[in-house]
Nucleic acid binder design. Structure first.
Lengths: 235, 235
DNA sequence: TCGGCTCTGTGCGCTAGCGCCCAGACGGCC
DNA sequence: GGCCGTCTGGGCGCTAGCGCACAGAGCCGA
């Protein structure tokens, strides 16, 4: 068969489909370019499209009252956005915003619902992904409570690296503070410390991971736990 | 028809089923009495039974490293334990422990899987419940990060009251500290403050809610948000 | 070239919650 | 009655992170 869309199988969930199912699915997808900081969904919004990031990634952010926000999940080429539809609910209770710009495949919500019925191989895979996401939510809740900012930042940078598939990316400390749910100054200090330890370099938003292994050691165990969970359930 | 199991429809999810489906389901359930502090599931454990609490409730607790633990969800007669099976995964990533002793209906995991196929009315309801639970996870993550212990305690007491269906229940501060993810002393202080404000009385584990409205005012908005989410999706 | 904007770094006083320890209070049991 | 285990309360010094304010550094466009 012909892989009609560029990079279609760069998304792990799609790549796990049998060729025939994939073909059928792709026929109903359109390639889009997600642009940085775009909001795909506000809490309570109706989900119009589901997204399969291929070389981009999305943050799931819980926001309450007037607080900065707190990222509780990250969706890259290993996942999808719009899992609420798997449960028959076409809204989503969190912010979803583009954190890594780049290409994704998207599908209209109605089409997606039909696709779930027409392509029996799809639902089981996505269900398992949803399960992993739930585990990630719980893990992140405890991580946020107990781990210090520096370890959480390290974890976060590693998660971003994996999804950006690059040791370099651009993000301001202001943005990071909204993800970690701390002040910008808190990020400055944690990033400064990581930089002093030669694990990363940071310059006006340009982040480079210098020592991935060292950074893993500096990160809390939640990074590993997340990855293991994903591999165990979907690998 | 005859409601064969005592209090069967005390569980909201079951009560929402058509009579015929309910009858079928109940034939495969057995009534059990959950005892306080019983562990229904450790992270990674295989789920042997699903539970529909009728007059009992269960805490979902995320635990990392050597920390006290953090409750991320509460399952009472409005819900069920074992939703992982809806997603085709027969493990569960968190601790599940009995927090309010009392009767529940339980079903063998294999039977439950068969039931999902045989009783088409079941899956949509449980799916929606799972969606609500996911929202609760995200909400709790942010709540834990941003809200002070006193407000979180107030929220927690209200959630417990709703599930215990009583203004009085028994819980030590030690236990509470594991739910809220704080020191026991932190609970002492927060509870002392609520007591001073005549919202609750607290005596050697015997908690009485004196002023529910006042307690709602003292709680963070997450209590209301959770309830509204449940009503919107399942009400 | 200059001015303005964005991003980063720092300093200071403050607070919530921590870790540790011990005192008191209640209740059950011998 | 006396003892012990459990539960609550409080004190003390400490730390992580907060809020605020300001200074410097790079970049871009007029």
């Amino acid at each position: 068969m012909q892989r009609t869309k560029p990079g279609a199988t760069a998304n792990s969930l799609l790549a796990a489909l049998p060729d025939k199912s994939l073909e059928h699915l792709l026929a109903n997808c359109e390639p889009v370019d997600l642009v940085f900081a775009d909001i795909l969904c506000l809490p309570g919004d109706r989900i119009r499209h589901v997204y399969f990031p291929t070389d981009s990634f999305i943050s799931l952010v819980a926001q309450i009252d007037g607080y900065a926000g707190l990222e509780v999940g990250m969706v890259g080429s290993e996942g999808m956005f719009g899992v609420g539809l798997l449960l028959g609910v076409d809204v989503w209770p969190m912010h979803a915003l583009v954190q890594g710009a780049g290409p994704a495949l998207r599908m209209n919500a109605d089409r997606f619902r039909r696709e779930l019925e027409d392509t029996p191989a799809l639902q089981p895979i996505l269900n398992r992904y949803l399960y992993v996401l739930i585990g990630q939510l719980a893990q992140t809740a405890a991580c946020t409570r107990f781990h210090v900012v520096e370890a959480r930042l390290a974890r976060w940078l590693l998660m971003t690296r994996d999804r950006a598939r690059s040791d370099e990316f651009y993000l301001t400390q202001e943005f990071l503070s909204h993800m970690l749910g701390v002040r910008r100054v808190g990020v400055t200090q944690a990033a400064g410390s990581l930089q002093k330890r030669k694990l990363i370099s940071y310059n006006r938003g340009a982040i480079t991971i210098l020592d991935g292994n060292g950074l893993e050691a500096a990160a809390c165990g939640c990074y590993l736990a997340d990855n293991q969970s994903y591999d165990r359930i979907l690998g």
